Simulated assay, not measured.
Amino acid sequence: MHLVSPSPSVALVSNFNDLVTTRYQGTVNALCWERDLIGDFKEIVNCLTLQDHVTEVSAEDLSVLNLSLQGDLARQIILQDLQQLTQIGAAPVLNLIQCYARDDELDFIATDVYSYHVDRSPIATDTFLCTYHGAASDILPNAQVQQKILIPSIREQLRALYDGPEAGFEQFLTEYFFDLHYQPLPDAKPINLGRGHLWRLAVDHPTQQVAPCVHRAPLEQDGEYRLLLIC
């Protein structure tokens, strides 16, 4: 029984090697290593200290926690994920999250991580993430979104905001990351990434062969921190 709902944009794998070696093809731009993890991840969250709205937790921070057997099982899973991703050249970060910064400077478009967006890189790379505790991110198939800068009302307001020659307007949209953000279509059906699964999402880069994966951070539950691995 699959833990993740099937979708034309998602391919399921059963181990770490397949996660990092399977190629995106066609409409598939998200790969999921489905896992039903054991251990008490909430205990880890309760033992950590939030120092800012988003606090990076190192492997050393995890190692010194005084945990029960179930808490230690969860810790070993996280440490293994960090190690495996590091070994393939990624730079994973474990974050304890209360909330992210919100972008409310413009009332007609947001560019924070709560807005549906894609990641961009000048080099070939992927986004890996796993939610161990708390609310999980959502993704949307590219056929179910519209780039916000192509929505006439938003584009008109961005043109009014832009103070420069017409030839530089597209560069302005890229420079301030407006072009990375998307609006769900009325019939869009978000796919929740769930807890415990390790995901690999396609990034917009010069050699990418598929559309980048559209995703967003979830709104946090009141009083509940998220424990997220991301790179």
Score class of each variant (00 low, 15 high):
7 S>V: 10
28 V>S: 12
184 P>N: 05
19 L>Y: 05
191 I>G: 08
86 T>K: 12
190 P>D: 09
48 L>D: 04
148 K>R: 15
200 R>N: 07
95 N>R: 15
130 C>F: 02
45 V>Q: 07
173 L>P: 12
201 L>Y: 01
131 T>Q: 05
174 T>C: 12
129 L>R: 12
207 T>H: 10
2 H>N: 13
15 N>L: 04
137 S>F: 14
13 V>M: 11
227 L>Y: 06
192 N>R: 13
152 P>D: 04
37 L>S: 02
135 A>Y: 01
207 T>F: 08
95 N>C: 13
152 P>I: 04
230 I>P: 00
112 D>L: 11
16 F>C: 06
196 G>W: 01
124 A>E: 13
59 A>I: 02
228 L>C: 03
221 Q>C: 01
33 W>T: 09
27 T>D: 15
29 N>M: 05
189 K>L: 13
197 H>L: 05
207 T>V: 12
48 L>F: 06
163 D>R: 15
41 F>G: 05
8 P>S: 05
65 L>T: 04
223 G>W: 07
18 D>Y: 07
95 N>G: 08
119 D>M: 09
52 D>F: 03
128 F>W: 03
65 L>I: 03
168 G>N: 15
18 D>Q: 15
202 A>Q: 02
223 G>C: 07
122 P>Q: 12
43 E>I: 01
173 L>T: 11
118 V>D: 06
211 A>Y: 08
39 G>A: 08
78 I>L: 01
95 N>F: 11
231 C>N: 14
41 F>I: 11
169 F>Y: 12
120 R>I: 09
201 L>F: 06
134 G>L: 06
20 V>F: 05
